[in-house]
Amino acid sequence: MDLDLDQHLADASALIAEAADLDALGALDTELLGRKSVVTEARRGLGDLDPDRRREAGSRLNDARAALEGLLEGRRVELEAGERTVRLEAERMDLTELDRGRRLGHRHVVTQTWERLEDLFVGMGYTVAEGPEIEDEWHNFGALNFPPGHPARDMYDTLYVDYGDPLSTLLRTHTSPVQIRVMETEEPPIYSIMPGRVFRSDTADATHMPVFHQIEALVIDRDITFGDLAGTLEAFTTAYFGAGFTSRLRPSYFPFTEPSAEFDIRRPDGSWLELGGCGMVHPNVLRAGGLDPEEWSGFAFGFGLDRLALMRHGIDDLRELFRNDHRFLSQF
């Protein structure tokens, strides 16, 4: 056999290495391994050889063919990797160009506080009750043990609306009328909170708004005590404000609770903050709600919701909550 396989392999190897792309490599594949290739032609000539030499030459041809295949495959992998690199490079993006600040919206800071309180009390076993913002005089005052002409009505600067009989219908001055509505519709035991919007005839300033929000809690069950009230408020204080906050009760006056108290919270720095009012549900209120005060007892407490939002975020002016400036709203 006069074929110099070594030389052929060397020449082919150089050609393969020079193949510039997959098309050129495909052409080489045909040229080196196809029907008209040197190795295919040589295999056809094997039949003319005697058996020993045929075996030896066949083996050499197989090796050469395998070597060529290996070279072609190696180059193919190389070229494919190169082409992928080029293709991906062409897809390069500057992601910072593409950051358009797409954003989620923002819940109002009052809503955030409202929902946080709901979640906390739901966790403590309470349901959430609601009532109308325009109320009748009975639910807002009468049923809450403020008889007509009662001096404590002066504690509330009430806004009335022109509806029904004069002074019969008003913008609720507190969330407490929902206590009565819950008693009217549900059987005890009652463990409910009542967040809501309330109204007073107050000129807007840094700490007053004619519209603001309160949250109220009502518990009515058998054998509920003032100690239960104090313990519940302490649990709430720690859960909402965090470890290091405690609470205390001071005697106060509300017509719809007795004994009545203010509840204060003590910050970790030792300072006290007056948070809200509370007390044992007055027997007259239980009766107004259709319950027998000898059978059922209960407590209620309530406080301003907006103020908690202000405190959490260090906002010093209540009016900001209702101005709806987007630069304010989008911070929370």
């Binding site: 954003r103 989620l104 919206g105 923002h106 109002h108 909550l321 209702f322 709806n324």
Partner: peptide
């Protein structure tokens, strides 16, 4: 992406 507002009623 909408922001909640709370105008007075």
């Amino acid at each position: 992406g909408l922001d909640e507002v709370m105008p007075v009623p």
